[in-house]
Amino acid sequence: MTDTTLPSPASRQLLVEHARTVAEQADRHAVTLESMLAVLRAGRLDDRAARILATEIATTALVDLRMVTDQQRSRMLEPVVGAFARLRTDLHPLVRYGDLDVQFVEPPTTGRALPGEVAHAARAIVRSAVLAFVDKGETRRVRIQWDCDGLNLLIGIRDDGRGDLTMHDDSLRPIAEQVRSLDGTLAVDATPGWGSSLDIRLPLDPPNEPEPLVDSVPLSLRERDVLRLVVSGARNREIGRRLSISENTVKFHVSNLLRKAGARSRAELTALAKG
């Protein structure tokens, strides 16, 4: 049966924002490349000065790209059914070319959409778990089930192997680390002669990072933007470029931030912001 469920307004908004971000990034890349070409072709700059300036332009662009990529990855959503279908595709070679019988228990079509980071990690965790089972040498059948309780992605993986898998098994270490990085939980249950099972819970809403300064000091939206870039290490000129404001305006906001935070320097302001 074809799923004709329309995306929610929130999902549509995220798709619109993603398209806008992609277009903006394309424009930024074009400007970056044009700037680098202009610098490299500039007759008034010697080779060394041109290389230094071009490298600075490229470095700034890369930092900006990584920031946007991280934000997009955390904000994009994948329908739970679509994310599970991608998992089936990932495991297709094992099913088609190996002796492994993989049973997929489809998640409910009404399940909440998964944040991109959770969906990506969930597929990686399942792939690693299946390979861990196969490496034991006696696994012939694996059952994979996903469910969603509205707050968590629930993953169940069971095999028909020797049933000697434990939390201390080396093959589970990467899985445990990934689960912990997402503030999730991992449980292992094994019955000798009957197989092993993994039960994994991944929160769909990661815990908010503490922002002591933002929580304790009233800041305008622009001051928050400036503070974020100050904490990242950007200087006034770079902050002005990213926020499309003058360097003098940046200095004004930084001065206000120092006064409100009771800080004597940018380093102290950064330390207070990081808590």
Rank of each mutant, 00 (worst) to 15 (best):
T60V: 13
L182I: 03
G184V: 01
E223A: 11
N152S: 07
L94E: 13
R222C: 10
V254N: 11
D3T: 05
L257K: 06
R123D: 00
A49K: 07
L77I: 04
V254Y: 08
A42R: 12
H18Q: 12
P212K: 04
E56Q: 15
E247I: 15
R173C: 06
I155H: 00
L15W: 14
S255C: 02
R123E: 01
T32R: 15
A271S: 12
V16C: 08
L37R: 11
S197C: 09
S196K: 12
L257G: 13
V39I: 06
T59V: 06
D47C: 11
M36L: 10
Q13S: 04
R28F: 06
A124S: 13
G43Q: 12
R86Q: 15
R123K: 04
S35I: 04
R237P: 10
T139I: 13
D90W: 07
G195E: 01
T60W: 04
L37P: 05
Y97T: 07
M36W: 04
R73K: 15
L65I: 06
R112W: 01
E238D: 15
A132H: 01
R259V: 06
T191P: 10
K260Q: 13
A10W: 05
L6M: 11
A119T: 03
K136W: 05
A61L: 15
R12G: 07
E17I: 05
R237M: 10
P9Y: 09
T21Q: 12
R73F: 12
M1F: 14
R75F: 02
R141F: 09
T69E: 13
D159W: 03
I245W: 00
S232T: 15
L182H: 01
A113L: 06
V63E: 11
T166E: 08
R86I: 02
R123L: 01
G82S: 14
L37S: 13
D159N: 09
L219N: 07
A50P: 04
E17G: 13
A50L: 10
E138I: 04
G163P: 09
E78Q: 14
L45E: 03
D160K: 13
L151F: 04
T32E: 13
